[in-house]
Amino acid sequence: MTGAAIELSGVGKTFGRVQALQGLDLEVRPGELTALLGPNGAGKTTAIGLMLGLLRPTAGAVRVLGGDPRDATTRAQVGSMPQESALPAALTVREAVTLFARMYPSPLPVDETLALADLLPLGGRRAGALSGGQARRLAFALAMVGNPAVLYLDEPTTGMDAGSRQGFWAAVERLKRGGRTILLTTHYLEEAERTADRVVVMNAGRILADGTPGALRSSIATSHVRFQSDLVLTELQHLPGVEGAEVDERGHATLTTRTPEALLTALVQSGTPFSQLEVTRASLEDAFMSLTGSVKA
């Protein structure tokens, strides 16, 4: 398709006296992995509920794949991996995936779906006997077996160990290369920074920022300079370009600056001994906190 895969135009949503969304405009392009981030209560869940056809907008319009997200034809092209899934505990993994496959007009082959979610060795295990991470992989398989053009991933890696997370994101990358549109919500901002083509930050029902992870990092233009020295906090605060300074009990200093080069030059020229130097650019989490004043996505 040539238009937006997901489009929200002037969308408002109220629950009684609570205004959850206010004139929200958002377009998600086909084949793009978009991370939708925001603090608790930002309106992310409401926005996704509208995209899934689970809610009706109070104002504005929502289109998914050019159609109404509440229509059966549109819903058959959409997969969703919610944060909490009610899995069919008495069925085996293979039986559950086979059952879900029969609900769609053009599903993926069951074995292909199990392999994508790294579940082939667990096909005979009952869903109720899976570990937390394995259950999340089954939820992923159930979201994918319908062969969706649009996929929603809500906190997908919660409960997964490091190896499962790595395998999961490799599978998502394959899906993205295949042209699927993916919308991600996550508290793991480092995952969003590493995997997303685009990041949309929401708060109080509005969009605060929209761009690539690199563009959002650049918007705050800060770096962190860390080293160990004998300088006290007051001396560190007077170094050129320092916007913030902290010193822990072991003498490790962390400085925030927009001009790390000037700061390091002044430090060297002063003749002050220092060690364990580390300079890091602003992260997506830094940008998120700057935009929202929050520490949680």
Rank of each mutant, 00 (worst) to 15 (best):
192 A>C: 09
172 V>E: 09
193 E>S: 11
189 L>Y: 06
192 A>F: 06
175 L>T: 04
188 Y>S: 00
181 T>F: 12
173 E>Y: 10
195 T>S: 05
176 K>R: 14
188 Y>I: 03
178 G>M: 01
181 T>S: 11
189 L>M: 05
199 V>H: 10
193 E>A: 15
200 V>T: 13
177 R>I: 05
188 Y>Q: 12
194 R>Q: 12
193 E>H: 10
175 L>N: 02
195 T>C: 15
183 L>Q: 05
198 R>H: 09
194 R>L: 09
178 G>Q: 02
199 V>Y: 12
190 E>L: 11
187 H>Q: 14
196 A>V: 04
186 T>I: 00
197 D>S: 10
173 E>A: 15
169 W>M: 10
182 I>P: 01
187 H>P: 14
200 V>N: 06
178 G>L: 00
178 G>E: 01
191 E>R: 09
171 A>K: 04
187 H>F: 07
192 A>T: 07
180 R>F: 08
180 R>I: 04
172 V>H: 01
176 K>G: 03
170 A>I: 09
175 L>P: 02
189 L>F: 05
187 H>T: 04
183 L>P: 09
175 L>K: 00
184 L>Y: 09
187 H>I: 05
199 V>L: 11
199 V>G: 06
170 A>K: 12
177 R>Q: 15
176 K>W: 06
187 H>V: 04
184 L>R: 00
195 T>N: 14
182 I>S: 07
194 R>T: 08
199 V>R: 11
168 F>Y: 13
178 G>N: 00
169 W>E: 08
193 E>Y: 15
185 T>V: 12
193 E>V: 10
179 G>R: 00
168 F>K: 03
182 I>H: 07
171 A>C: 02
173 E>K: 14
198 R>S: 12
168 F>E: 03
177 R>S: 14
186 T>W: 06
168 F>A: 00
193 E>D: 12
188 Y>M: 06
178 G>Y: 02
199 V>E: 15
